[in-house]
Nucleic acid binder design. Sequence first.
DNA 1: CCAAAAGTGTTGACCGTACACCCATGA
DNA 2: TCATGGGTGTACGGTCAACACTTTTGG
Lengths: 231, 231
Amino acid sequence: MDNSGYYSEHHKFYVAVDCIIFGFDQDGLKLLLIKRNFEPMKGKWSLMGGFLQENESLDEAAARVLYQLTGLREVYLEQLYTYGEVERDPGERVISVSYYALIRTEDYNSDLGKQHGARWFLLDKKPPLIFDHDVMVDKALRRLRRKTRSQPIGFELLPEKFTIPMLQRLYEGIHGKKFDKRNFRKKIFQLNILKKLDEKEKSGSRKGAWLYKFDNKKYNKLEEAGMHFSI
Amino acid sequence: MDNSGYYSEHHKFYVAVDCIIFGFDQDGLKLLLIKRNFEPMKGKWSLMGGFLQENESLDEAAARVLYQLTGLREVYLEQLYTYGEVERDPGERVISVSYYALIRTEDYNSDLGKQHGARWFLLDKKPPLIFDHDVMVDKALRRLRRKTRSQPIGFELLPEKFTIPMLQRLYEGIHGKKFDKRNFRKKIFQLNILKKLDEKEKSGSRKGAWLYKFDNKKYNKLEEAGMHFSI
DNA sequence: CCAAAAGTGTTGACCGTACACCCATGA
DNA sequence: TCATGGGTGTACGGTCAACACTTTTGG
């Protein structure tokens, strides 16, 4: 089918994906950033990004870019927003589609990261980023806050076995405020999506905290029913 | 600045915007659709769209496309999602950024519409659309539902002066269900964003219903304070 | 034995929802 | 006078937020 008659009247553009990569450990909620290795803005901190290729969808491009930096596949990855200001990239006109990812820092392959000059930054200690990347991060955080308020995503950021205090610290990191632990436990347990294990995590305290696993089966049932989780 | 060394390794793509245009009148919530006038899929119903040009941002392109069809500027217009499947447009690879708009059907210039073969369709009587446009509409409706649940957008769909029963019919159209009128009034008035006028609209009933205006000043104050409106 | 984090229940305020009758008027 | 849509108030139940003390144990 030749449609060059119609389509070819129009311009073509570079299309990129940029990934806002969230991670979580005992220090708090973090972002994975890289040192940009080409001009313009070479050497500045930046989100990990890459250009869309001919044979891949946007989702595939985002997954590829994420894989290149972290060695991870099958992670939580969601499209956020598309940035198309004419001068947003001073080098060339580039349309950038942003995605955010939630990964377990423990799974992350730091050798790959080193090759890209990547580093984790606590959210509130993040350096200024190039272009409109700060805006992208801000939007990602707002989306993450909204999503975690209505669905229990965020478990993607925790190790497979986790304690309630860890989960609470995660939610506090995401929302940037403290929650009452009695109310927090109440709401989490009401959802009935955790499986209690017969193990304790003893490194965080003398007493030790019980470990839990996320119960996918129960969660999927709940999701179909259309739950609401209000932290 | 010449960056061709880096950027030019990559492919370029056609980028389009597609507009989901919502309107509202006494019949209910409607969508403005056009008959596509070029191949592939010529003659099929489609969202109004257009290709991104070299000198405009995505937001500008969406506003231009909307203006071309409706003659309206300064309408509520918000980016939704970007579609980049390789085969989504069988004619050529096109990345499409979707936007949704809320317009007053009374303001709409139907002459321009006719030139594009445009027609309003009640949401639940919409024909099947080309490509992934049905998915776009579905996503737009879900976004509209979510937004109108937390912010009183939707007033953009009403004439300047409107009655509470009209407003309720609008919200019922958006959410696809009936609300109790006492509770609806209570919640609307609690927001304190309406100005009661000294006029009645008498065409809808014998008794007549009081007309109201949306009070922008009060609304803006409220919005800063971070209100929540739960229908 | 003590410091430090884990764990546990109750109450009051507010909000959402369900529900039924009178009002004004044109025909 | 009556049919039609507009307009009004209350009571119950559930959910959210505030709040303080006991438990465990390594050092």
